[in-house]
Design a binder for these strands. Structure first.
Lengths: 155, 155
DNA sequence: TTGAGTGCAAATCCTTTGCAGGCGG
DNA sequence: CCGCCTGCAAAGGATTTGCACTCAA
């Protein structure tokens, strides 16, 4: 089993090279995403994790940092049809992955499918679009909720 | 060339059958979507169209009606990685379609791809998820903006 | 040293809600 | 006529911003 390497140092260097200052706040936030692989944290989530760790940081800085990291292509912004956005680390060595979102329990399942990625590339090429990101979302009800009253719409 | 039939009467009957009252406001909003096929209106867009037509309606009712129509599966809610949501008429006779969103000009291109839909169905089945909606979004830069400074991130 | 980054509070944007009055069935 | 719908204004949640201060380089 592969232990995922900590890319934080590289990413920090990357920021430094682009003229950004490395502050404790920025480093903390990047480490949170490194430690939360496979999660899709919201700004509020990140802020809560920091508070639990006893770290001093403002919500404003959290939002500013997330926005900056998305612009640097270090974080990917995800839309799960909620009122707030989610974020995850970009791994340029991995093909884009996609998400199933359960409308009952709000859990998300990640999946990879090279066929879908390839079709996305062909379609983008057909329409003359240079891809920045592709997201395939399946909204539905997962079997674990089978006995509950199903929600047949977005929340 | 096929002239798309006006389904508004059927949809209104549908609402009536489900115990909802048919008010002028609800009928107006449904007709706006009928007349704006291929567009992806936001709540504010709908409100503006109504104002231009000289119709009297409040923004609150616009939001309430949109939410109700989504719950009735008459409208589909779309997320284009913006701060507000977009809506389009659901056509149950058509397979789900998807969108390319240009990060430069904010234009959207609709496309259909039965291969992608089929893959989505297979994946949902594999993970035991009953599909409510599928959305494949390609974010990128369209060729028309080729000479402009490219935005390489979400707005 | 210096200006980019931070914290705080206020502002902004989008959307929802409480309430009193209106009107569809 | 009953109670669902509406309009208005106020509230709410998520995110951004102005400003004075701080600290990374």
């Amino acid at each position: 089993m592969l232990i995922p390497e900590d890319r934080t140092e590289n990413l920090l260097q990357n920021l430094r090279d682009r003229g950004y200052r490395i502050t404790p706040q920025r480093e903390l936030i990047m480490r949170i995403f490194q430690d939360a692989k496979d999660k899709h944290l919201s700004a509020e989530d990140v802020f809560e994790v920091l508070k639990e760790k006893g770290e001093q940081i403002s919500l404003a800085t959290t939002y500013r940092t997330l926005r900056m990291l998305v612009q640097m292509n270090i974080l990917r912004e995800l839309d799960f049809a909620e009122t707030h956005k989610h974020y995850e680390l970009v791994d340029e060595n991995q093909p884009p992955h996609h998400h199933i979102i359960c409308l009952n329990c709000n859990k998300t399942i990640e999946f990879e499918d090279e066929g879908i990625n390839e079709m996305g590339r062909l379609i983008a090429e057909k329409y003359g679009v240079e891809i920045v990101d592709m997201q395939f979302q399946i909204f539905g009800n997962c079997v674990h909720e089978e006995n509950d009253e199903h929600r047949t719409h977005r929340q």
